[in-house]
Amino acid sequence: MVAAPQLQDAVVTRMERHGSHFFTIGLRAGSIARQAEPGQFVMIAVHPQLAADSGFLAISSSWDPLLRRPFSIYRVNSAEEEIFLLGQATGRGSRILAAAVPGQVYSVLGPLGRPFRVEPGWKHLLLVGGGAGVAPLVFAGERFAARGIAVTVLFGFRNAGSVIGWEATSAWATSRYLVTEDGSAGKKGLVTDVLRRLLASASTTTTSTSSSGCDCGHGPAPTPARFDAILACGPAVMLKATAELARAAGVPCQVSAERTMGCGFGVCLSCVLPRPDGSYALVCQDGPVFASEEVDLSG
């Protein structure tokens, strides 16, 4: 059972910038940090909170932009009750949030949504991530590896300057594959190029476990392995292609979807994703993690 979400005033513990537009923000978030499961997200107000004033309660320092922003939980430091969010300072809201400094207080709502689900008996997971979409996968890999599950990582980025979350995976990944669109880091290409080879080699191999991994994509050919499931997060085209390859290979695939979100807890009905039957799923409540066949990823 997924824990009930909380509304918390969280103090910024760390703020780091990476490359041209990524940032990670650390927040002391008490029970959110204790309860969060991989794949869940928080809604964070992009403006810091003001102290209570003149008889009315604490409010955001601005109502513009009005809505909170959804962020997958990227990492958790349970001992310090800290959560880390990975942001991309591209939109107005995320650029405002990127100006946060340690010590400021931000309102955080979470943990929200359905997490990745790992079935008993699963021994090997493949994480397929693109861009800032690697965030929930880093949390997932760390958690599931700690439970003794082998985790293969396949991350793709635009270029070397936009590689994020990769270093963190070295601590727990069984095998790692890095690709960039321009080849400035790892192997040149798309994650789906490598995925196709990984799944093809897996399907022709009956008994094999991966023991040695490729750190950069320049090494030997992918180690044949059988994956119990693929967990994916990234751009819609990548998710769709990943889901199709997984289906063809007969490997269960869970995707973490992203949509414009108003509330994050199921009342504004904005973050809809079509289901095959024509009805809509809510990304915030029915997801963000879906079995890939549950939703129409091109919708």
Binding site: D64, L66, L67, G262, C268, L269, S270, V272
Partner: peptide, 15 residues
């Protein structure tokens, strides 16, 4: 079933 997305867009201090 409701309208197709996008269904929501932010505006200055509103939606």
């Amino acid at each position: 079933v409701g309208n197709p997305p996008p269904r929501l867009v932010e505006t200055p201090a509103g939606v």
